[in-house]
């Protein structure tokens, strides 16, 4: 028991699963009803937002390889110049950089329409490669799972990224790369997430942030 800490610190509230009906609270239209005038969704930015338009999509797979069709994903990212819309960033952006998407109940595919972020300052003056932070909530997930997606066309920056290169097992780093492809005129990054996999090299890296 950490009785000393309890004198000076309040314990963080315990996490619980979002459950199968997380959409009611976070994406009620997907649950099947209209209630709010304004809804938070999976389209980030406006037509005038500077940057390259991209689609990020994929599936989240459980330990049997079955798509998790009830998963809800949120993403957080910088703008095309690498700035976050937050007061901690001195050149705070007009681009909010946040969205949420529930996987399709039939196909299990999630999707975000966003812009490609720029490189972001890291610790000690080192730059981070462009990346998008992900957090996953679902039935059976007791504490939201944090991961990151990097971009397959940023190999040089990825190879120097302080977070990616801090992953001791090089064979696991590929699990954080979204793969760029062209589809019907769209730039699509395909990013499948394996919450559990028999082969440790195939299970997506999740972070204790």
């Amino acid at each position: 028991m950490s009785s000393v800490q309890q004198i000076t610190r309040l314990p963080e509230t315990a996490s619980q699963t979002g459950g199968p009906y997380v959409h009611i609270g976070l994406a009620p239209q997907q649950a099947g009803f209209e209630i709010f005038e304004r809804n938070f969704g999976n389209v980030l930015g406006a037509p005038q937002t500077p940057g390259e338009r991209i689609v990020v999509e994929g599936r989240v797979l459980d330990g049997s390889g079955t798509p998790m069709r009830d998963v809800l994903i949120e993403i957080w990212q910088a703008d095309a110049d690498g700035h976050y819309a937050h007061p901690a960033d001195p050149r705070s952006s007009a681009f909010r950089g946040w969205g949420r998407s529930g996987a399709d109940f039939e196909t299990g595919v999630y999707r975000f329409d966003t812009i490609k972020p720029g490189p972001v300052p890291g610790r000690g003056g080192r730059m981070q490669a462009p990346h998008i932070a992900f957090v996953l909530f679902a039935r059976g997930i007791n504490v939201g799972l944090h991961t990151r997606m990097y971009f397959s066309d940023e190999k040089v920056a990825n190879d120097a990224d302080p977070v990616l290169t801090s992953i001791e097992w090089e064979v696991r780093r590929h699990t954080l790369i979204g793969h760029r492809e062209q589809r019907d005129g769209d730039i699509v990054y395909r990013f499948d997430i394996r919450v559990q996999a028999p082969d440790p090299a195939q299970e997506t890296v999740f972070f204790d942030v």
Binding site: D62, G63, S64, T66, M68, A138, R139, G140, I141, N142, L145, S166, I167, R172, V195, Q196, A197, P200, E203, T204, V205, F206, F207, D208
Partner: peptide, 10 residues
């Protein structure tokens, strides 16, 4: 059981 990573969080 099937929705928990086997690897430790990094």
């Amino acid at each position: 059981v099937l929705r928990s990573p086997k690897n430790a969080l990094i």
